[in-house]
Design a binder for these strands. Sequence first.
RNA 1: GCGGGCGUGGCGGAAUUGGUAGACGCAAGGGACUUAAAAUCCCUUGGGCUUGUCCCGUGCGGGUUCGAGUCCCGCCGCCCGCACCA
Length: 853
Amino acid sequence: MSRYNVKECEPKWQRAWDEAGCFSAAEDPSKPKYYVLEMFPYPSGRIHMGHVRNYTIGDVIARYKRAQGFNVLHPMGWDAFGLPAENAAMEKKVHPAKWTYENIAVMREQLKTMGLSIDWAREFATCSPDYYRHQQRMFLDFLEAGLVYRKESWVNWDPVDQTVLANEQVIDGRGWRSNALVEKRRLAQWFFKITAVSDDLLAALEGLERWPEKVRVMQEKWIGRSRGARIDFKLSGGHDPLEVFTTRPDTLFGASFCALSPHHPLAAKLAADNPELADFIAECDRLGTSEEAIETAEKKGFDTGLKAYNPFQPDIELPVYVANFVLMDYGTGAIFGSAGHDQRDLDFARKYDLAVIPVVLPPDADADSFTIEDEAYLGPGTIFNSDFLDGLEVPAAIDGAIARLEQDGSGREEINFRLRDWGVSRQRYWGCPIPVIHCDTCGTVPVPAEQLPVELPDDITLDQPGNPLAHHPSWKYVACPKCGKPAERDTDTMDTFVDSSWYFARFCSPQAETPLERGAVDYWLPVDQYIGGIEHAVLHLLYSRFFTRAMSRCGYMALDEPFDGLFTQGMIGHQTYQGPDGAWLSPAEVQRVDGERFETLDGQPVSTGRVEKMSKSKKNTIDPAAIIETYGADTARWFMLSDSPPDRDMAWTDSGVEGAYHFVQRLWRQVLDAADHLPAPGSTRPEAFGPADALRRLTHKTIAAYTNDLEQFRFNRGVARIHELSNALSGFKAADEAGRWAQREAVESLVRLMAPMMPHLAEELWSRLGHEALLVDQPWPKADPVLLIDDSVTVAVQVGGKLRSTIEVPRDSEDETLREAALAEPAVQRAIADKALRKVIVVKNRIVNIVVS
RNA sequence: GCGGGCGUGGCGGAAUUGGUAGACGCAAGGGACUUAAAAUCCCUUGGGCUUGUCCCGUGCGGGUUCGAGUCCCGCCGCCCGCACCA
C-alpha cells in the first residue's frame, strides 16, 4: 500500500498555489472583503509552537472564508524593533539589523513550510525605514493635532534595560521584559494623549461584540472610570485650599483627617523647612513600588500640623498628614479620610487614634447602637449623622452632596480615570527615532517632512550602558530647521508598541508613498478577524484602539475600532521532566519503557511534572520545524486543531502528533481506494439513490454542522465530524451506481471540508480524484436542507425520569402515537408494573416521560 | 481582598442550550494478518454487582422540574486578571 509522501506533496502544492497567485489580494468592490490577521511575530530566531497554533487558526479562517467567496486579505510581517536585537548585539557582537534580518529570513522559510494562505507580497518589517518613516510622519501629524506632547514627569525606570517603561509594561512593580524592580525617575518624555479618548475607549467596548468578554473586562478595569467629586478643603497657615478627589462625597460628614501623597507639591513645600517630614518622604520613596513592599507596607503618616476644614463643617479642624498610601498619580494626590466607610482610612485612623464617625447606616441596623469596629462599612444604606443628607440613600446622597458643593463653589462633580497618557520615549537604539530636534532658541522643532525619515545610524557602539544614539559622535548634531543654529536631535526612540499600533492598516497598502492609502484602508479595514494571545489584552489592543482614533482624527481613515472580531488562543504546554538531581530534562532526553520514564542516556528514573507552558528554562519546548520535517505541516496543523478548543490551553504530546499522522495516512488510503472505482468527475448523477441515502444524509449533515463549527471557532468539534464521516465511509460498500455516486459525493465533500485544516493533503487527494482545477479555488460545499432532516427519529422513553427504552418512529409522529408506542414497550411495562399512571409527557421527536405514582 | 473563568472516564474533550451523559480522539487490553516486527484491520474499554437494556455516576450539599452536566441557593477546589485607584 502506498503512503502519502509528505516531503514531495507539501512543497509541490505550495509552489502550485504560489504560481497561480491564489493568495494575492486586490481591492475588488464587487466582492465582499474579509481581512484575517494574526498578531505578527517578533523575529526572535525560530518559530515556536505558539506561532504554529496562531497561524493555523488564522489560516483555517482565511481559507474557509476564501472558499465562501470572500475577497480575503491575509498578510504577514515582522514586529522587528525591540530589545532582544540589542542584547544579541552585545552578546554576539552582531549588528541588531543583521541579527533581525537573518532571523526574519529563517522564520519566513519556516512559516512557508506551514502552507499558509498568505499574500507574501505585502510583507514588511517595522525596522525598515520604509515603514518607520511613515510612523514618523504620523507622529508629527499627531503632534500637530495635539495628540502628542512632551513633559517632564515621574517615570518607571528599568535599571536593567536602562529605559523607561509605560505603566502597562510594569507588572507587579517589575519590568515586563527584564523583571527588574522598577525605579521612579523624573525625565522629559514624549506622551501620546490616550486620555483624550478614555471615555470613548471605554464606551466603545460595549460595541465589540465579537471580542472575548474577558478582554473587554480587562480593558474596562484598566481604563478605570470613576465618578465622584473634587472638593476644596480650606487650610490653616495661609496655604491655598487643598483639592481632594473622592467617589464618596456622601461621607463628608464622617471626615476625620486629610492626607497627602509624599509626592504632593504641598508636601514638598512643607518638607523644605521640616527636616523630619523630609526624612519621612525619603523613607516612603525607599519603600518603592514593588509588590512585596506594597503588600507588607503598614499605613504610615506624618502629621504636618496643618489643619483642614471640610466645606460642610467649617468649624471642625481636621489634621493633615502626609501618608505613604496616597498615590500622586491618581485623582489630586490628596484625600480626605472617612474612617467609617473606607478600610484604608479606618486602619489609618485606628493607628493614629483619630475619630471614626459612621455616617452610613446599614439597612437593618439601629442608629443608636451601630458602631464600626475593625471593618469599614462599604455597603448600601441610609445616611445619618449628616445634617442635610440625613435619610437619603447612598446614591441620592452622593448627588445631593455634589449639588451642594457646586452651589457653594467649594467643589464639583468629576470623572476620574485610572488610565494615564502613554509615555513612548525609550532610551534605546533599536527603535523608531523620534523625529524632533531640540534647539536652544526655538525649543522643540519637528523634523520637516522632506527630511524624513530620520534614519538610525549604522555605526553604533553597544558596549557601554545607556543610549547608543546619545553616544554617537555625530548623529544627533544637526542644524535647527527653523533658525539654522546648531541643535540636537531627540535621541530617544519610540516604544515598539507604537510600531504594532498601526501595522494592520499599513498591510492595506504596504508600498504606498504615504503612510496609508485612503482607498485601500477604506476597503479593507476594519480587520474582520484578529487572532492572537491573551497577553496583549490590554497593551497592544488598547494602544491600537487609541491609534485608530488618532489616525482618524488626522484624516487617514474614518474608523474608531480596528478589530471587529478578536479571538484569543490558549497557550501550548508540554509535560515537564526532572532527573534525580532535580535538573529539568527535555523531552528528547527522556525515554518511555513500560509506562515508566527514564533518562535516555543513563537510564536514571525521571519524575514527570505537570503540563506547563513551553519555556526554555523548564526545557519542555518542542521545535515545530522538527515536527514539520518529520510529519509534515498538515499533521502539525491537524493536531493543533484536534482535541482542545482553540481558546483553551493545550498540551503537546507525542502520541497526539502520531495519532494525527496516522489519520493523514488513513485518509490517503481511504480516498485512493475509493478513487479507483468512483464515477468520473462530471458524469451525471443517477436519479434514484435508495440504499445510499444514509451516506448522503450524513454527508450533508456533516457539511452543515462542520460549517457551523468553523464559524464558531469550534475546530475540535469539526475535526470530530471529519472523523465521523471518514468512519462512515470506511464501512460503506457501494452496491450499485447510485451508491458509487453517494460515495463520490461523500469523498469529495470530505476532501473539500478538510482543506482549510490540511490544505496539502486535500489538494493532493483532489487531484487524485481526477480534478484538473485546484481545490483551493473550489467553492465551499452547500448542504441540501432536504437531506438534513431524517424520516425517522429515535425517541427516548423514560419512566419517572429514568431511561427505560428507545423507540424508532416516523419523524413528527403524533403525540398519541408516541404515547402508545412507548407504553407498548416491554421494558416500560415492567418499569410501570402495578403503579398508577399519573401523566405522560410527550416531546415531539425527542422523548416520552411516563410519570407514575 | 476585588473581578472573571472553570470543575464530566486513565487523558484531551462532546452533549441539539432543560430531554438517551461520555460523540470524536489519545492511551490501555484482546484478536486477525505476518516466520517475526512495523504498518493495517476488527473487538472491548465510566464504576459496580446479583450480567439486568439492573444499580450508581458530571467537585460537595440543598432546591426548582415529569425530567438537571445544563437553571437557582450555599459551600469546596483550581486557573487567570487586577490589586493601597480614595
